[in-house]
């Protein structure tokens, strides 16, 4: 439908609005009710008088809707907007140890295996190196501050503690340009293992974390050890790690 000619002719906003008001008073029948009476758009965009929203009004309302949605959900990823995070599926600070969990140990069916005191971490390169829990915790520990980002859109900063992955790789004589696979205790599922290429495997910020925010990792965050690397999707930050192998 095209703009009504008398509206496109121009004129100052005030005049148009008063004219609109007068028309409104006179509007009686249903037909006119629907066709008449412009506002919100003020006729600036040449909007024809309508029963309600003008085109500009519609654009403003739609833009407002998008803005309200962004404002009330973006807080799940943007720390500054966290107080407004009212309608997002996650809150970056809600979860065990102040961090959300995507997949629990129970859902991954590793709760028993991960708690086993006989747990051993194996790093298999040219040499095979094994660590029990005590040895794992005796390794030189580093602390890094890295965000974890889930493919579902939420992300949160956290402080991670544990040995550097590259130190473990060196101990097993894994070459610096090698791609490795990090394997979880999970028996099944598409995310039970992930490949780590050299850029991430050799990054000094990449840890096989055993601690989170000043305490031991909780089961749902990947106890006894999990991968945490910079700039990597959450599903590939493998939890409940028990093997690292050279590919």
């Amino acid at each position: 439908m095209s703009a009504a000619p008398e509206r496109t002719a121009g004129g100052r906003e005030g005049n148009l609005r008063r004219e609109g008001d007068r028309r409104r008073e006179g509007a009686g029948g249903a037909e006119q009710d629907l066709e008449d009476q412009g506002n919100l758009g003020n006729g600036r965009d040449g909007a024809p008088p309508t029963g309600g929203l003008t085109r500009r009004g519609l654009a403003v309302a739609t833009g407002t809707a998008a803005a309200v949605i962004v404002a009330t959900t973006a807080g799940q990823a943007v720390p500054a907007l966290a107080p407004l995070d009212l309608l997002a599926p996650r809150r970056p600070d809600l979860g065990p140890q102040g961090l959300p969990v995507n997949r629990t140990a129970r859902a991954a069916r590793v709760a028993v295996a991960a708690r086993d005191p006989g747990y051993r971490l194996e790093v298999v390169g040219t040499r095979r190196v094994g660590y029990d829990l005590a040895q794992l915790h005796a390794l030189p520990s580093h602390t890094v501050r890295l965000p974890i980002t889930c493919v579902e859109g939420w992300s949160a900063d956290a402080t991670w503690h544990g040995p550097r992955l590259r130190d473990l790789l060196d101990a097993a004589l894994i070459p610096v340009d090698a791609t490795i696979r990090v394997e979880s205790l999970e028996a099944h599922g598409g995310y039970r293992a992930s490949e780590v290429r050299p850029a991430h495997a050799r990054d000094p910020l990449t840890l096989l974390a055993t601690g989170l925010n000043g305490a031991d990792l909780e089961l749902d965050h990947g106890y006894p050890a999990r991968l945490i690397a910079p700039d990597r999707p959450g599903v590939l930050q493998t939890k409940w790690v028990h093997r690292v192998v050279l590919l």
């Binding site: 409104r24 519609l58 403003v60 309302a61």
Partner: peptide, 26 residues
Amino acid sequence: SRLVRAPYRAVVQGALIVSGAVALMS
């Protein structure tokens, strides 16, 4: 269009659009 008078109808419509979109996405 039957219930709300014209100067306010646009605002009500706009608010309904925003409300509907927010409710739907959540």
